[in-house]
């Protein structure tokens, strides 16, 4: 454990200067672009799934990492996005037009959840978000429009310039573009007035408020942006899977995305990416040990928190 972490630190040291960092990043991007040419369907499927979770992790990272808010119900936003797209497409909407609606509804959900609760202490917030997550899932299970317990099936594949996206490679590149956009947005937010305001609040809420920052409003922005990320991811998820059901958005889903963020290191973009990669690959690699893998997952989470509470990716040095 200590060794592998030390390994990351050393790796990071080698990548120390900007030039090597840039070169490493370029190699990584070329690798990701060329992967479908050499990979088989299974690998491509896993890779697409990884990209998808990276988007979700980056979104939740804004809430948890940047603004320092616990959220145990992130799957709710992801569900709202997926169901919005699924339902609207059922009524004949074009997929691309459903995206703004998916964003709109998930942001509204974010305001409904965040508005009254962001004043609460962090542990109360954890339980409230969890409660909202469960309410969303149970509601989806009990309503007619969401297809009840069996969910929505037969969601159509989207097309772009007449080309129908139905190959796994199509979705691979689509999600890759989403990841790039998500990274860009996350980076820009981090280095902005709003990004700094989140950090001030996280470090000392009273001092931040004394500096004229409205904590509730600032936190609510984090919630809304995080929700928008989840909504977009959900919309794409719906058309990739062509079927969605309430159980996809259970608490385990929320917990997993949160783990990706924390495992990698809260508030760090490479950390969130690393966490998501780990999260998808770990169960795939340990497919052989079956159900036991989730047990190891829990144990590892505790070990990581005890020995490295700041996450796997190292802190920036100042």
């Amino acid at each position: 454990m200590g060794n592998s972490v030390g390994g990351i630190d050393r790796f990071r040291k080698i990548l120390g200067d900007r030039k090597t960092q840039g070169a490493a990043l370029a190699v990584l991007i070329i690798f990701v672009i060329l992967l479908p040419l050499v990979a088989n369907n299974y690998i491509e499927e896993v890779a697409t799934n990884t990209l998808f979770y990276i988007v979700l992790a980056l979104g939740l990272n804004i809430v948890v990492g940047y603004a320092g808010l616990v959220d145990l119900g992130y799957a709710a936003f992801f569900a709202v996005g997926a169901y919005t797209t699924g339902i609207l497409m059922h009524y004949g909407w074009n997929f691309w037009l459903t995206i703004p609606m998916a964003v709109l509804f998930s942001v509204i959900a974010g305001v409904i959840i965040g508005g009254p609760t962001l004043r609460l202490r962090s542990d109360y917030l954890a339980i409230v978000t969890l409660g909202f997550g469960e309410i969303t899932r149970i509601t989806a299970r009990n309503l007619k429009i969401t297809g009840g317990a069996s969910g929505l099936v037969g969601i159509q594949r989207p097309s772009i310039f007449g080309h129908i996206l139905n190959q796994i490679t199509d979705f691979y590149y689509l999600f890759f573009i989403l990841v790039i956009l998500a990274v860009l947005v996350a980076m820009r937010l981090h280095n902005s007035r709003l990004g700094r305001a989140w950090q001030y609040i996280r470090e000392d809420e009273d001092a931040a408020e004394a500096m004229g920052i409205d904590p509730v409003k600032t936190k609510l922005y984090a919630y809304m942006i995080g929700a928008a990320f989840g909504g977009i991811a959900g919309a794409f998820f719906a058309v990739k899977m062509t079927a969605i059901s309430p159980e996809t958005f259970a608490f385990t889903q929320s917990a997993m995305i949160l783990l990706a963020v924390i495992l990698g290191g809260m508030g760090k973009i490479p950390g969130a990416i690393l966490g998501a990669v780990f999260l998808v690959l770990f169960p795939e690699i340990f497919r052989g040990i079956g159900q036991t893998r989730m047990l190891f997952f829990g144990i590892m989470l505790v070990i990581i928190m005890v020995f490295r509470p700041q996450g796997l990716w190292p802190e920036r040095k100042g």
Partner: peptide, 18 residues
């Protein structure tokens, strides 16, 4: 820079679109 927060106004879109 935190002190300047209340004297400035860039928001979400300003940040994302630079």
């Amino acid at each position: 820079m935190s002190g300047m927060h209340s004297r400035t106004k860039a928001g979400v879109f300003g940040a994302i679109l630079r």
